[in-house]
Amino acid sequence: MAPGVAVLDYGSGNLRSAVRALERAGADVTLTSDFDTALGADGLVVPGVGAYAACMQGLRSVRGEWVIGRRLAGGRPVLGICVGMQILFETGIEHGVTTPGCGEWPGTVERIEADIVPHMGWNTVDVADGSTLFDGIDDERFYFVHSYGVRRWELEEPNPAMPARVTWTSYAGDRFVAAVENGPLSATQFHPEKSGDAGAALLRNWVTSLS
């Protein structure tokens, strides 16, 4: 039986492409804003495009931060994509405005230090050792489109049984987080649903891990 994946609909946009990509990856996908449906799925995907503050406002409107926290407390998988990764961190700063995030990881989302933003296009990544998401695709390119990112990884890791595997990338001389795998919580700054065969393989790896 295919794993059941809920894609959280909180008004962020770009949802249908994520749904189709996850279906192609072998999941039984439900697009939902319902708390109980999102809580009960085998896997939850939190997409996100646009401004950090707007995404947090939309997330809170459907109690998304609560469902993420409840799932993680029970060891149930969550995958964040693009701004859906960024809102998992403690704080976002855009245009001088500081917005609290979900706080699942410490750290700040801030403007990339580059003369030209957004960072838009295909880029390689420096894959963390032992990665499950990037199994078999560690030399591939992935599609990014963003102006903000996490430039410092700040999580202290007292639990060696659940290490954080952090994958990095660089643009115009700046270095920032491209993906994280930390127990049941995973996230990518790039868009796997727009990353061709490599992105499809990454989503298959995540969907397979739900079984």
Rank of each mutant, 00 (worst) to 15 (best):
136 G>Y: 03
126 D>N: 15
116 I>A: 14
111 R>M: 12
124 T>K: 14
134 F>C: 02
97 V>A: 14
141 R>M: 11
150 V>E: 10
140 E>H: 07
177 V>Y: 01
156 E>G: 05
174 D>E: 06
158 P>A: 11
148 Y>M: 10
106 P>Y: 06
106 P>Q: 05
165 R>V: 02
103 G>N: 03
160 P>V: 02
169 T>A: 02
112 I>S: 00
142 F>Y: 15
127 V>M: 03
174 D>C: 05
118 P>N: 13
127 V>R: 08
97 V>I: 14
105 W>S: 12
147 S>Q: 02
98 T>P: 04
99 T>P: 00
99 T>Q: 03
95 H>I: 12
140 E>G: 01
91 T>D: 10
163 P>D: 01
98 T>C: 13
166 V>M: 07
162 M>C: 14
173 G>P: 00
149 G>W: 04
123 N>V: 11
168 W>A: 05
96 G>V: 08
159 N>I: 15
159 N>G: 01
131 S>W: 06
115 D>S: 14
116 I>W: 11
175 R>W: 02
120 M>G: 05
151 R>S: 04
179 A>N: 07
93 I>H: 11
148 Y>I: 04
105 W>D: 10
91 T>C: 09
89 F>D: 02
158 P>W: 10
105 W>M: 11
111 R>K: 13
119 H>Q: 03
178 A>D: 04
127 V>K: 04
148 Y>R: 10
92 G>I: 13
119 H>P: 05
95 H>W: 09
155 L>I: 15
156 E>S: 14
166 V>F: 05
174 D>V: 08
89 F>H: 05
163 P>R: 07
100 P>H: 09
90 E>F: 09
157 E>A: 08
177 V>A: 01
97 V>F: 12
118 P>L: 09
152 R>E: 15
124 T>D: 13
153 W>D: 01
161 A>K: 08
131 S>C: 04
175 R>M: 07
166 V>W: 06
114 A>K: 08
143 Y>K: 07
138 D>H: 12
131 S>M: 07
133 L>H: 05
170 S>H: 09
166 V>Y: 06
94 E>T: 09
89 F>R: 01
156 E>H: 13
176 F>R: 06
122 W>F: 06
169 T>D: 10
115 D>W: 12
124 T>H: 15
169 T>P: 05
142 F>S: 04
93 I>C: 10
128 A>Y: 07
135 D>Q: 15
114 A>Y: 08
140 E>W: 10
92 G>H: 00
157 E>R: 14
123 N>Q: 09
143 Y>T: 08
116 I>M: 12
144 F>W: 10
134 F>Q: 00
93 I>K: 12
158 P>Q: 09
118 P>S: 09
163 P>S: 03
115 D>C: 10
142 F>M: 02
104 E>T: 10
143 Y>M: 02
122 W>A: 03
112 I>L: 08
95 H>D: 14
100 P>W: 13
138 D>P: 00
151 R>F: 00
134 F>E: 00
107 G>H: 04
120 M>T: 11
112 I>V: 13
146 H>A: 10
